[in-house]
Simulated scan of single mutants.
Amino acid sequence: MKNLFIIIALFITQFTFAQKVDKDLEAIKETLSRQERAWNTGNLDDFMNGYWESDNLLFIGKSGVTNGWQATLDNYKKSYPNTDAMGKLTFTLIKVEKLSKNVALVIGKWHLSRTKGDLQGHFSLTWKKINGKWVIIADHSS
């Protein structure tokens, strides 16, 4: 009986911890879903809500490293000036993992369906929980 109690207690502890981890990862996944929806309605300002609004945000792409939230938004607006250029975005998540209590890694694929030709690539996103909100602090997209 004592062993059964210990097993049940361990299960409850593991389940409670797993729920907390899942809640954080679900918040990240929901942010990515909101970003997809914002992109697909042509709203780059709302799309940027998933990013850390800081001069310390890092974006690494085919043109090199961009520092800062505003510079990243400006680059998006320059590269995707209208909804035709933006197309329809789809994320496919490959790995979503917490690295620590407040840091997570997301690896995935992005695909833009566009009339003038599709674009696609991969990304790795470093997320950090800042002031209770999960935000992207580094984006490496290729």
Rank of each mutant, 00 (worst) to 15 (best):
F5Q: 13
L10K: 00
F11Q: 02
I12H: 00
T13L: 15
F17M: 12
A18S: 13
Q19I: 05
K20S: 14
V21F: 00
V21S: 09
D24E: 15
D24F: 07
K29A: 04
K29F: 01
R34K: 10
T41K: 08
T41E: 11
T41Y: 06
G42F: 02
N43M: 10
D45C: 06
F47L: 08
M48F: 08
N49M: 10
W52S: 03
S54R: 05
N56F: 13
F59E: 04
G61T: 01
G64S: 08
N67V: 09
Q70F: 05
L73K: 12
K77N: 07
P81V: 10
N82I: 04
T83I: 15
D84H: 07
D84R: 09
A85Q: 08
A85F: 03
G87I: 04
K88G: 05
K88F: 06
L89D: 09
F91Y: 15
F91K: 07
E97Y: 02
L99H: 06
K101F: 14
N102M: 06
A104W: 00
L105N: 09
V106M: 01
I107Q: 10
L112D: 03
K116W: 05
D118E: 11
Q120V: 01
Q120I: 02
G121W: 05
F123H: 03
F123A: 02
T126H: 13
W127G: 07
W127R: 06
K128T: 04
I130L: 14
I130V: 04
N131S: 15
K133V: 09
W134L: 02
V135G: 00
I136W: 01
I136A: 12
A138Q: 01
A138T: 00
A138N: 05
D139C: 05
H140W: 10
S142V: 09
